[in-house]
Amino acid sequence: MSGPTGAPEGPGGPGTLPHLPHWGPWRTGLAILRRDLFVTGREFPIFLAQVILQPLFLLFVFGKVLAELGYTQPGYQQVLFPGLVALAAVLTGLQSTALPLVIEFSYSNEIEDRLLAPLPIGGVAVEKVVFAALRACVAAAVMFPIGIWILGSIPWHASTAPGVVVMIVLGSLLGAAMGLILGTYVPPNRINVTFALVLTPLIFTGSSQYPWPSLGRLRWFQVVSALNPMTYVSEGLRALMTTGVPHLPTWLCFVVAAGYLIVLGLVGMLGFLRRALG
C-alpha cells in the first residue's frame, strides 16, 4: 500500500520516524503550550471578559460607587486597587487550571493525548501551571488600564515596578498551583460545590479589600486571613505600590508566597501524578 504508513525507517523499527536529534521533552512541552495559546488566542475577547468581569465590578462598586456616595474614606482606592490586582492574578490562575483539569480528566479525556506525548508526565502539569499563570498575568495586567479608567489614577511607583511584576507572576503561579490541587483531588461530581465552598472564602479572606495589619480588632479574622496565600500577594503588591497604607513587610510577603507556591505546587503535582498514572 502507498501512503503515510509506509514512512521511512527510523531507529524505532519499521515505519517509525527518524526523530530529530535535538527534540527534547522541553520542546514537547512548548508544543503543548503552543496548542493552549492557539486555542486561547482564538477566543481572546471571551477570555478577557471571563477574567475581567469580577474584578471590574468589585473595582467599580467599592472603588467608585461607594466612594462617590461617601461611604468609603478617601484613600480606600489605594488599599483596594493592589488587592484587586492580586485577586485577578490568583483567581484567574486557579480557575485556569482547576476547571480544565476536572473536565479533561473525567469528561473529555482530552489530556490523554498530552499524557502520551514524549515528555515526563509531570511536564504536562508544569505546562498547565505555566499556561494558567500566563492567563493570570494577562488578567492582572489588564487591571491597570481598567483602574486608570474607573478610578482616574492608580497607586504606582516606577521604582518598584520590577517587584510588582515578580509579585504578580508569583501570585499567578500560586493561583495555578491551587487550581492544580482542586482540579486533581476533587472528584468531578463535587467540583461545583467545592468551587462554591472554596472560591468565596478565598476571595474574601485574601486581604484584597482590606489591609491585613488593620485587622487587630478582628483577631480571628486576621488569623484566618493569614492562612490564605492570597493575603501575601495582596499585601506584597500594597507594600510595593502604595504609600501610607499599613501592610506586611515586603520581604515577608515574597518569602511566604514563594513558600506556599513550593508546598502547594508539590501537593498539586502529587495529585496530578496520582490522576495521570494508574
Binding site: L17, L20, W23, R27, I32, R35, R114, A117, P118
Partner: peptide
C-alpha cells in the same frame, strides 16, 4: 498538534 508534540517537522 499531535505531530508537533512528537517533534514531527
Amino acid at each position: 498538534f499531535h505531530a508537533s508534540y512528537h517533534g514531527v517537522p
